[in-house]
Computed example of a mutant assay.
Amino acid sequence: MRRLRALAAAAALVLSLVGVAGCTTPEDAVPDVTVTGEPGEAPTITYLTPLDVKETHREQLWPGTGPTLVNGDAVLIDYWLEDATDASLVRESYSTKPMAKMLTEVDLGKDLFKTLRGQKVGARLLQISPGSGTDATDYPTVTVIDVLPTRASGKVVPPVAGKPVVTRDQSGAPTMKPTGTDPPTTLGAQPLIRGTGDQVEADDVVTVQYTGFSWTTGEPFDSSWSHTGLPVSFSLQDVQAFSEGLVDQPVGSQVMLVVPPSYALGITDSEEMAGQTVVYVVDILDTGHPAGAASG
C-alpha cells in the first residue's frame, strides 16, 4: 500500500511539472508567423490578422556566418515592416537602400537593439512587437531584418605593379602607400577584393564605405570610416567617376579608383584636392535599382 501511495505521489509530481513547463497561457503564446524568401530578396510574411501580440518575440530565421555585431559599431540592415493588424506594409528598404545605424539603443530603439545584439552578419531575423509606442507605433508590428556587411568580403586580388598599395586595419578601414610616380591621366579601376554579389549597374543606388587619398602623398582627405563610421548611399548618376569605375563590379568588392582632375570629385567637397589626381578605395556593400530614389 505504501508503495502504491509513493507511486501515485510521484505521478502527481510529474504531471504537475509537465503542466508548469508544457502549458502555455495565451499571454505567452508565440505568434504564428511564417517567413519565406531567399537571401538578398524581400521576404514574404504570412499570418492571420489581426495578430494578437502581448510581448516582443524575437527569432533567428537563419544564422549569420560573418563577423559578430559589436555594440557601438556600425550596423547595416535591410528590413520589411508590416502593421500586424492588417498585414499592410509600413516601410521597407529592399526597393530603396539599406539602413545604416550605430549599434546602440539610442540609435536603433530598445526593441531593434535587443534583436540585433549578438547576431552575426548574414543573419535573417524576425521581430514581432506589440503596439507599445516604444518604436513610435501604436499598433503591433512584424519586422524581418537582414544583417548586411559593413566592409568588403571576398577574394583578395593580387596587387598590380605600379599601383598604390592599400592595406586595411582590423575594422576594414584602408590606408594607402603612394607609388612616388607621376599620376595617370585616365580613370582607372582596380579590384582589391572581389565579391560575389550582384553586379553594379549604371543607374543604381549604391551603399559603400570609402576613403579618398591624395595620389602624391597617400594622405586621406575624406572618409566615411572616419566621419561617422557609417556606410553612405548615393545614386551613381550623381558621381561620374564612380559611375564609370564601379559599373559591373560585384557587391562585396573593394575597388581602387584612380581619378584624374578632369573628373569632378562628386562625392567629396574638397577645395584642397582641386586639380589633383585622387585615389578612392571603395567597399561596395549593396546595390539596387530604386525608381526615382534620391541620393543621400
Rank of each mutant, 00 (worst) to 15 (best):
Q170R: 15
V156S: 06
S129Q: 09
P159L: 09
L148G: 01
V142Y: 00
Q170V: 15
V142A: 01
G162Q: 06
S93M: 11
D138P: 03
G109H: 07
D111F: 02
S153R: 06
K97R: 15
T104H: 05
V70M: 12
K110C: 09
L148D: 00
F113L: 06
P130E: 01
K155I: 11
S171G: 14
P140M: 01
A84F: 01
M102N: 13
T104Q: 05
Q170A: 15
D73F: 05
V90Q: 06
T150N: 03
G154L: 03
S171F: 10
V156P: 03
T96P: 01
T141Y: 03
D135A: 13
L89N: 11
T167V: 12
M99A: 13
R168K: 14
K110P: 09
K101V: 09
P159G: 03
G172C: 14
Q127E: 15
D111H: 12
W80Q: 02
P98A: 12
K114Y: 09
R124Q: 11
K163P: 00
V70K: 14
L125K: 04
T104I: 05
E105A: 15
D135S: 13
I128A: 00
V160H: 06
G72S: 10
A100S: 15
A152M: 02
T115Y: 02
D146F: 04
S88R: 13
V165S: 13
T141I: 07
A74I: 02
P130Q: 07
R124I: 14
V144Q: 01
R168D: 01
T137S: 09
P140C: 08
A152Y: 00
Q170D: 15
T150D: 05
K120A: 14
K110M: 14
S153G: 09
D73M: 08
K163Y: 12
T115F: 05
K110G: 13
G118C: 07
D111M: 02
T150C: 03
L81C: 08
T137N: 10
N71Y: 10
P140T: 08
P149L: 05
S95H: 13
G133T: 10
L126W: 01
A100F: 06
